[in-house]
Amino acid sequence: MKIQHRDTERHVLTIMVDNEAGILAKIAGLFTARGYNIDSLTVADISEDHAVSRITVVTSGPPPVIDQITAQLERLVPVHKVTDLTEAGPYVERELALIKVAGKGENRVEALRIADLFRAKVVDTTTSSFVFELTGAPDKINTFVALMRELGLVEVGRTGIVGMMRGTEGT
């Protein structure tokens, strides 16, 4: 159940954690216990010795709740640092999607034309379908998927959002 509030805002949080079993469940549980949805979740090992992972969570909520979630995340023992990219300053966010489209004739030609406009790469093709790879902002991917729905969308797989501060400052 997602709780909706008038002043709900979308936030992108990055969480640096010890790479250990159970940490993802603890973090997800923190959101679940408060009735807030995780819109996107990605995890990657980021250190050479495999000791630290970076978790990126996209969620929505009123600012006081986001502040409370951030404070509670910071109190978890294996958490090194929590950064709310939305509040910290300019940042970049991207997502990768694989989009399978079936089509023949004009629909096939149109799907290729639109893919070219969106700079989507064809990563697999048969005589009756394509799999496109598209990287970009979530809105770009949403728009591409909506256009492909009209041309024979079969399946969509998305990685979730990854975000990073712009410039030389790290999270």
Rank of each mutant, 00 (worst) to 15 (best):
M1I: 11
M1V: 13
K2W: 06
K2N: 12
I3Y: 08
H11D: 14
L13P: 06
I15S: 04
V17T: 15
V17R: 09
D18Y: 06
D18R: 13
A25K: 07
A25L: 11
K26F: 06
L30A: 02
A33P: 00
Y36T: 10
V43L: 14
A51D: 14
S53K: 14
I55N: 11
T56A: 07
T56R: 06
T59R: 07
P62T: 12
P63A: 11
V65R: 12
V65E: 15
I66K: 10
R75Y: 07
R75I: 06
V77L: 14
P78A: 10
P78R: 08
V79F: 08
T83P: 04
T83E: 07
T83I: 10
Y91I: 10
V92W: 02
E93T: 04
R94E: 11
E95T: 02
A97N: 01
I99R: 00
K100E: 13
G105A: 10
E106W: 07
N107D: 10
N107V: 04
E110P: 05
I114R: 15
A115Q: 04
A115H: 06
R119K: 12
A120G: 05
A120C: 08
K121P: 03
V122T: 13
T127R: 13
F132G: 00
F132S: 00
E133N: 04
T135M: 10
G136E: 04
A137E: 14
D139W: 01
I141D: 00
I141G: 00
I141H: 00
T143V: 11
V145W: 02
V145A: 03
A146Y: 05
R149D: 13
L151I: 10
L153I: 05
V156M: 03
G157V: 15
G157H: 12
G160Y: 03
I161K: 06
V162K: 12
G163I: 03
M164R: 09
M165W: 02
R166E: 10
T168A: 15
T168D: 14
E169Q: 15
E169K: 15
G170T: 14
T171L: 11
